[in-house]
């Protein structure tokens, strides 16, 4: 098969829509662009005169900073709108806000919103390239891409790699995007968490589900720990945080059941002592900080590749 050099769509909405070849192209491009981050002058003129608008209607530190750093490294101008300071408070709809921003001649719209499908809605209405930076519990494609890049750097490729995703799958857009991405690249993905936080029909898409953590970590190459999203918990999905810690916190004790060379990943922000213990987050098994650096490279690749 001829190697592709371009993405099919004008937007990046989710991992579901990307082909395996497109995922490989994005990772290769990111790997190449990473060199720029090591230069004395860490900026190239590629997107000079272009503008990216960031519409963030949910809190974010890592993703917002990572996107804006990526844009700046390519000389792209940025404007930023956050929910608390925008006309959204005055009742303007998302679409109206975006259309007004686009009237200012933007090329990229990066959107984070609590409603699943909001990026898709904008993509259909705007001529700018829309990048989904997280839509509710649906998808967070750039997180999955940076995770894939991190795994590729460490393991070479994902074919037949055994990956366990632990935690609140139900509310996790990171899990959804990663399940799509990892299975497309040939990894064997399994899930572990409280039964109430694992979607009922998820086994149908070809992932194995465990409820017992010690059994789940066995033979896994990667243990991908999700953040317990306290802000998305409706009452009563699990009895208490303390019980969650007892059953699902990754501790040195739990890791005794895993492969000695298993690696730990986490999308951040880390709730230390809830989903994993501090000594594991800071250990040599952890790929967490590598994930953060790769986030900038992946987002540069996305700006580079989108039309």
């Amino acid at each position: 098969m001829a190697k592709i050099t371009e993405l099919k769509n004008k937007d990046l909405l989710g991992m579901k829509e990307l082909s395996r070849e497109e995922i490989e192209l994005i990772c290769e491009t990111a790997e190449t662009l990473k060199e720029i981050l090591e230069r004395p002058i860490k900026t190239v003129p590629y997107l000079r005169g272009k503008t990216a608008c960031f519409l963030f209607f949910e809190p974010s530190t890592r993703t917002l900073n990572s996107f804006s750093l990526a844009a700046k490294r390519l000389s792209c101008d940025i404007v930023s709108v956050s929910a608390s300071s925008s006309s959204a408070l005055k009742g303007e709809t998302l679409l109206d806000t975006a259309k007004n921003i686009e009237a200012m001649k933007t090329n990229f719209v990066v959107v984070r919103h609590s409603v699943p499908g909001s990026a898709h809605l904008l993509a259909r209405q705007l001529s700018s390239s829309v990048i989904n930076a997280g839509d509710g519990t649906h998808e967070h494609p750039t997180q999955a891409l940076l995770d894939i890049l991190t795994i590729k750097e460490h393991f070479g490729d994902l074919e037949r790699l055994k990956i366990l995703i632990v935690g609140d799958i139900e509310h996790s857009r990171v899990a959804r995007s990663n399940i799509w991405a990892m299975t497309k690249l040939g990894a064997e993905v399994s899930l572990c968490g409280p039964p109430t936080l694992i979607p009922y029909s998820i086994a149908q898409i070809g992932v194995k589900v465990y409820y017992d953590l010690k059994e789940a970590v066995k033979d896994k190459d990667i243990i991908y720990i999700l953040r317990l999203q306290k802000e998305r918990q409706e009452k009563g999905l699990f009895p208490s945080i303390r019980e969650y810690i007892n059953l699902y916190c990754i501790t040195p004790e739990v890791l005794k059941y895993a492969k000695p060379d298993a690696r730990i990943m986490h999308p951040g922000p880390v709730n230390r002592g809830i989903e994993l213990t501090p000594e594991i987050a800071d250990s040599s098994k952890s790929l967490i900080l590598g994930q953060v650096l790769n986030g900038v490279a992946i987002r540069m690749a996305i700006f580079y590749l989108l039309k």
Binding site: T5, E6, T29, E31, T32, L33, E35, Y304, L305, K307
Partner: peptide, 10 residues
């Protein structure tokens, strides 16, 4: 019309 592949500076 076609985006060039980036090969990287080394």
């Amino acid at each position: 019309d076609k985006k060039p592949m980036v090969y990287g500076t080394d």
